[in-house]
Structures are given as C-alpha cells and as structure tokens.
C-alpha cells in the first residue's frame, strides 16, 4: 500500500530544491543552447546540406535537447540522493514509513517535471535561432518523460553507488558526455564512413537521440520502435537495480 502523501512530500521537496537554484537552472540551459546554436547552427550549419529535408539548425535540436536532458537529469538526481547520504539527512527518509515506490515516484516524478521544464526552455531558446515544427508533439513529450524517468533512475543508482564526489562525477564525464556527443547529436550517423556507421549503433545514446528526432521530424537513423524498446529496456533495468538496492539496503542502511 503506497502512501500518496509521502510521495507528494518527496516530489514537492525535490522540485523546491530545483527551484531554489531556479535562476541557475534556467540560465544555464538557455546559455548553452544559445552557444551551440551560434557555433553549430549559424557558423557551421550554413555550410551544411539539409539532412533528409530538415534544415541543419533544426536537425540538431533533438540532439541538443537530449544532450542537456541526459546530463542535467543524471546529475540532478544523483546529487538528489548523494547529498542526503553525504550530509546524513537521509536518516529521515530511511526511518519514515516509505518504501521504494514512494521514494522513486517522488524523485522520478520530480525529475520528469524538471526535464519537461528544461525541454521547454531549450525549445523556446532554439526558436530564437531556427524555425522548426514538431511532427508528433505528444509523442515528443512522452518520449522526453520516458528518457527523463530512465536517466533519473540511472542518476539515482549513481548517487547511491558513489561514495565520494569524484565517483559521482566520473560516470557522466567518462561515459555519458562522450557517448552523447558521439550519439548523433550533431550529425546523422549515415554521414559516418564505414565501418563507423555500424560501430556507432553500439552506442545506446544513438537510439535515444534518434528516437527523439523521429518524434520531431518523422524520420530517424533507426526505427522508432527500436529506440522506444531500448529506452524502455534501460528503464526496466534501472528499476530492477533500484528495487534490489532497496530490498538489500545496499549503501543505504549500515
């Protein structure tokens, strides 16, 4: 039996934490998105051909969105659980009559809300630079929420696994960022020479970027269902890992 009040408390508190740094939370994505558009959209994009009939500036929007979302969602939720462990305030969550369901719904719900806000900010900023329209807006929102859920869970695992600040930063830095950059953010993997176009398919981020691009422009590097399936699979793995963590108390309970 899940306690909705407890879930709501965790959810609102997480959002509050986000809003406490609202200025930074809004300004940072606006700034980075603008920079990417100035460099890739305006400077380089002018010399790029359209990709599948999509203007290059518009083409990179889903990639940029994914780049920011993955980074922000992962770091946000990993800090969200790491900091209470670090400062000891996690005692309250552990001693409360809440289980894995309340905790996850609260944390992940908040992460999804934040991601949608972030996505909205990025899309509005992008509008200043390029004209674009979204082919499947409802699916786009749904897909963003799905990815946000998966990566907030991933961040959650990271924040529980890490026992120092270095470890907290290392996975995003060593894996997430490079894989995102190599994941077709700024190019279509068709543009890669052989055999790199095939090797690129081993990068899971390719499917995420491609999936989001499909919801935007109705076309993508890989089939939307594969993208969707991989995102769901990743989500399921994360849920299973977290359920295991809560059941055993690994790194949470002494």
């Amino acid at each position: 039996m899940i306690s909705w009040r407890s879930t709501w408390s965790i959810y609102t508190r997480e959002l509050m934490r986000f809003l406490r740094t609202a200025f930074q939370s809004v300004l940072a994505p606006v700034l980075t998105t603008s920079l990417y558009f100035i460099v890739f959209g305006a400077a380089i994009g002018g010399r790029m051909p359209d990709l599948g009939g999509v203007d290059y500036g518009a083409f990179i929007i889903p990639g940029l969105l994914m780049l920011t979302l993955l980074g922000e969602t992962t770091s946000n939720s990993s800090f969200g659980i790491y900091m209470p462990r670090f400062t000891g305030t996690i005692y309250e969550l552990l001693s409360a009559p809440v289980g894995v369901s309340e905790t996850l719904l609260g944390f992940v719900g908040a992460a999804m809300t934040k991601s949608l806000l972030l996505a909205a900010i990025i899309l509005l900023t992008a509008r200043l630079f390029v004209d674009y329209s979204i082919a499947h807006p409802v699916l786009a929102v749904f897909y963003i929420m799905l990815v946000a859920a998966a990566f907030s869970l991933f961040g959650f695992i990271l924040g529980i696994w890490a026992d120092n600040f270095e470890k907290l930063g290392i996975i995003p830095m060593l894996f997430l960022t490079p894989l995102t950059f190599l994941g077709g953010t700024f190019y279509s993997i068709d543009m890669l020479p052989r055999p790199w176009d095939t090797i690129a398919l081993a990068n899971p981020i390719v499917y995420l970027v491609s999936g989001l691009r499909w919801t935007f422009y109705g076309q993508s590097d890989v089939n939307i269902w594969i993208s969707f399936g991989i995102t769901l699979g990743f989500l399921a793995i994360c849920v299973a890992v977290i359920a295991f963590i809560f059941r055993t108390g690994w790194r949470l309970r002494a």
């Binding site: 306690s3 009040r5 407890s6 709501w8 408390s9 965790i10 609102t12 508190r13 509050m16 406490r20 400062t87 000891g88 305030t89 005692y91 309250e92 969550l93 001693s95 409360a96 009559p97 809440v98």
Partner: peptide, 29 residues
C-alpha cells in the same frame, strides 16, 4: 516512531517551517 539523530543533519537551506511540514508529510500525515 520518531527519531532525533545524534548528528545535526538537516537540509541547511530549508526554512524551519518547511522542514517540519515536510517531515509530517513524509510520514503520510
């Protein structure tokens, strides 16, 4: 069951009133 831990661990940025209301909500009240 209520617990006042040995260490002074609270979210330092939170206002008193909100911290206390949160605890109530967290316990489902």
């Amino acid at each position: 069951i209520g617990l006042v831990p040995q260490e002074l661990s609270t979210d330092m940025f939170e206002p008193v009133h909100r911290a206390v209301s949160y605890s109530r909500g967290l316990f489902g009240l």
